[in-house]
């Protein structure tokens, strides 16, 4: 093999950096949607590399449901300082009040669906023409068919019928006023690629990605952290277990997995041997209907 050869992670990295630079050049007001999860942390790392030695030329934006893991928030604030980025936070709580929205009820009442309202308001408030997201095509089948540059109408809707052909490495981000583009720089990465890249680049992660002791209840085979955001019934058995998180979303809709993995190597070993997909294992919301993501995407979801 020649010395002029990129391995698969280097190729993916180069593709993502290329996409980030296209974003910075083509859009006037982009923002990176930052959730505190490993995919968006990877995005920040790639953005940093894309524009070094300059700083990241767009803000990070956190659509805050108020249901975060405290560890993820702490990490967010640390990372923002570390990379010298600008952070915008917009709270779902405020949108609920301003717009008099009805919250979900029930045991795991989630604000996941309501995030869309806050996001669309924030897009309008900051006149964003591009939102950068950490979506990957291996996550599920609606994403598998979405472009890297995904044009949304004024309502934030994805229209699968009107996707632009995306040819070679040429990205067409031209839009009409009021439209915006969601760009997914790590579209072609799989979950394992992200983990391997995090290991290779020694990227810091929030502590909840590693094994720790936590009070949980078991619900339909999934382990949910006890917190003020979920309802613990008399019939629930609260147990202490050693767990880690495979994805980090809201405390109401992210499940933990039992694990003793305290290092990246151990986490990657566990993921490699797991035979359940990331969303299937840890996202409570995706089990509802087969087309859950498709529906949310069409309604302006990330």
């Amino acid at each position: 093999m020649s010395q002029y050869h990129l391995d698969y992670l280097e190729q993916l990295e180069s593709e993502s950096i290329h996409i980030f630079r296209e974003i910075a050049a083509q859009f006037e007001r982009p923002a990176l949607l930052f959730s505190g999860g490993k995919d968006s942390i990877t995005l920040v790392h790639l953005a940093k590399k894309a524009f070094a030695p300059g700083k990241i030329p767009f803000p990070l934006m956190h659509i805050d449901t108020g249901h975060n893991f405290p560890e993820a928030l702490e990490f967010r604030d640390w990372l923002v300082k570390e990379v010298n980025a600008t952070l915008i936070v917009r709270k779902v709580e405020d949108t609920i009040k301003q717009r008099n929205l009805t919250e979900q009820k029930g045991k795991f009442a989630s604000r996941n669906w309501l995030q869309t309202y806050t996001l669309l308001d924030a897009i309008e408030e900051f006149k964003l023409d591009c939102c950068i997201g950490g979506g990957r095509r291996d996550e599920e089948k609606a994403r598998a068919k979405e472009r890297i540059f995904s044009v949304r109408d004024e309502f934030g809707q994805w229209n699968p019928k009107l996707q632009r052909p995306e040819l070679w490495n040429i990205y067409n981000g031209r839009i009409h006023k009021g439209e915006n583009v969601r760009v997914f720089p790590i579209s072609n990465w799989t979950e394992l690629d992200v983990w391997n890249y995090i290991r290779k680049e020694k990227i810091d992660l929030p502590s909840i990605y590693f094994s720790h002791e936590r009070e949980i209840i078991e619900h339909e085979g999934q382990l949910i952290a006890v917190s003020g955001f979920i309802r613990v019934d008399d019939t629930d058995v609260v147990q202490k277990k050693k767990v880690r998180y495979r994805t980090v979303g809201d405390m109401t809709c992210t499940a933990a997995v039992e694990s003793n993995a305290t290092t990246l190597d151990e986490v990657i070993n566990e993921i490699t041997s797991t035979r359940i997909s990331e969303r299937g294992e840890t996202r409570i919301d995706d089990k509802v209907t087969e087309a859950a993501m498709e529906d949310r995407k069409k309604n302006g979801y990330f």
């Binding site: 698969y8 095509r137 291996d138 089948k141 609606a142 598998a144 068919k145 699968p160 019928k161 996707q163 052909p165 579209s187 072609n188 799989t190 394992l192 690629d193 087969e290 087309a291 498709e294 069409k298």
Partner: peptide
């Protein structure tokens, strides 16, 4: 490799879907 509900309902096919797999030798 089946399509989205929108495709089934509207009888359309989105032009391309991406699938990922790997072996110890290649992605």
């Amino acid at each position: 490799t089946d399509g989205l509900r929108a495709e089934r309902e509207q009888g359309i096919t989105i032009d391309v879907a991406y699938r990922y797999f790997s072996t110890p030798k290649r992605k």
